[in-house]
Nucleic acid binder design. Sequence first.
DNA 1: CTGCATCCTCACTGATACTG
DNA 2: CAGTATCAGTGAGGATGCAG
Lengths: 132, 132
Amino acid sequence: MSKENLRKCEGDRNDCPIKDVLYRVGDKWSMLTVIMLSDHGTLRFNELHNLIETISQRMLTVTLKTLEADGLIARKMYAQIPPKVEYSLTELGQSLVPPLMSLYEWANVSMPAIKASRERHQKQDLVAPDNR
Amino acid sequence: MSKENLRKCEGDRNDCPIKDVLYRVGDKWSMLTVIMLSDHGTLRFNELHNLIETISQRMLTVTLKTLEADGLIARKMYAQIPPKVEYSLTELGQSLVPPLMSLYEWANVSMPAIKASRERHQKQDLVAPDNR
DNA sequence: CTGCATCCTCACTGATACTG
DNA sequence: CAGTATCAGTGAGGATGCAG
């Protein structure tokens, strides 16, 4: 945790690993997909689609392609009719799971406090301005 | 790390802490701001603006307000001319730093492999389609 | 079953100007 | 110094239809 290399973050994505990691895992579905694969092991396209019900087919495709291009997941395609494609985490992908889990656990512990704080602020905002 | 509560993530933000935490820390500037405050301690508005050079004044304001509403940072305002406002992490905000750091360190270790993988895929894409 | 292509929307973001 | 207000552009993401 050397503080020195955190002092400043000026170049846009150049000398800022925080931004790098955000652009990797910060999108809407990547983390979720990695977690699902970590939890279930190998999964087929539709199995993922069912597990992450609110994802659109398009975004699942896009997310899987990006994760594959980044070397976080492996894609195994069976040349048969009907097609069958299996996805699983690579070693690199698995190495992401522990840090993800620590964030996940922080969320479980802290979200109640965050939500409570948010509601307190909403109430304050409601009484501050005149009701017009 | 009980697997049971990860099995499915269907309700949009209802029963899915992964999404919760993503919507908190996944935006473009929150993590960066938290890290800066963790690194420097108390900071004034313009000090933050200088440290995160690429952030616009508007987004810094928005980010700070959101983080404050969520109880992650504290805002201390001095009633004087010229105005002076100091921001610092609350305990809740500080509790976010360790998980953030584990992600940060994962990024430092893994980004080279990710970037290499990405470039490999780009080259493959360039030879796959007919050049037309 | 697994995916790609197209269209379309709207929320996030930045630029700019103004205020206490 | 520390914001607020307004406007406008961009691009992530969803809906739909088609294909191998």
